[in-house]
Simulated scan of single mutants.
Amino acid sequence: MMKEEIKKRSNLFAHKCVKLAVELPKNKLGSHIEGQLIRSSTSVAANYRAACLGQSKRAFISKLGIVIEEADECIFWLEFLRDEGMAKHVDFNEALKEAKELTSIFIASRITALKNLK
């Protein structure tokens, strides 16, 4: 998969999560998860873009590690919403599926980059 396609997917994913997050209940838990999901999902997109601009393979690999952590955090918050019964947004299942797919792609990319480094 090409970097530009992944950039686009991660950007669309961030937008989907933001839309989902702002629809959460306006209570203490909803507000907390809203902020965490917005932060982690936009971080996936922003840090993947930064990884693609890396000055070296090592910089790419390092930044990709951050992307993987943030994508996994998105999975956590989306699963948490589901488990709390707060996942009523129409795009919820699609967002969770995309979070898992993107995480798998980022992990595979990092493994490939590490192999190519040697």
Rank of each mutant, 00 (worst) to 15 (best):
Glu69Lys: 03
Asn27Pro: 01
Ser31Met: 08
Ser10Thr: 14
Ala95Trp: 13
Leu37His: 02
Lys57Gln: 11
Lys7Trp: 15
Lys63Arg: 14
Glu70Val: 12
Ser62Arg: 13
Ala51Asp: 13
Gly30Ala: 06
Ser56Pro: 05
Asn47Asp: 10
Ala14Ser: 11
Arg110Lys: 14
Phe13Val: 04
Lys57Thr: 03
Ala71Asn: 02
Arg39Pro: 06
Glu79Ile: 03
Arg110Leu: 04
Lys26Leu: 06
Ser40Phe: 02
Leu117Thr: 05
Asp91Cys: 03
Leu114Arg: 09
Glu94Gly: 12
His15Asn: 07
Lys100Ser: 04
Phe60Asp: 01
Leu64Asn: 10
Gln55Phe: 12
Ala59His: 04
Lys8His: 06
Ser104Arg: 14
Tyr48Ala: 02
Arg58Gly: 14
Glu94Ser: 15
Ala46Gln: 10
Leu96Met: 04
His32Arg: 15
Val18Asp: 09
Ser40Gln: 07
Ile66Cys: 05
Ser40Arg: 12
Asp72Val: 06
Lys8Leu: 08
Arg49Asn: 06
Leu81Phe: 04
Arg110Asn: 14
Thr103Ala: 11
Ile61Asp: 14
Glu94Trp: 07
Lys63Ala: 05
Val44Asp: 03
Lys100Trp: 00
Lys19Thr: 14
Ala71Val: 01
Gly54Glu: 10
Cys52Gly: 15
Arg39Val: 05
Lys97Met: 04
Glu5Met: 09
Ala87Phe: 06
Gly35Ile: 02
Asp91Pro: 03
Trp77Ile: 03
Gly35Tyr: 00
Gly65Cys: 01
Lys16Trp: 05
Ala113Phe: 13
Ala51Phe: 12
Ile107Cys: 04
Glu34Arg: 14
Ser43Lys: 07
Arg58Lys: 10
Ala113Arg: 11
Thr112Ala: 12
Ile38Thr: 14
Asn116Phe: 09
Lys8Gly: 02
Ala50Cys: 02
Ala87Thr: 09
Arg39Asn: 12
Ala14Val: 07
Leu78Thr: 01
Ala46Arg: 08
Asn47Phe: 13
Leu102Arg: 06
Gly85Pro: 11
Ser10Met: 10
Phe13Asp: 03
Gly35Thr: 02
Lys7Asp: 05
Arg49Lys: 11
Leu29Phe: 14
Glu79Phe: 00
Glu69Val: 00
Arg82Asn: 13
Gln55Lys: 14
Ala71Phe: 04
Lys57Pro: 09
Lys88Asp: 02
Ser56Gln: 06
Gly85Lys: 01
Lys97Cys: 03
Glu94Cys: 07
Thr103Trp: 01
Arg82Ser: 10
Asn116Tyr: 02
Ser62Met: 11
Lys19His: 11
Lys97Glu: 07
Ala108Asn: 09
Ala14Tyr: 03
Lys3Asn: 05
Gly35Glu: 03
Cys52Ala: 13
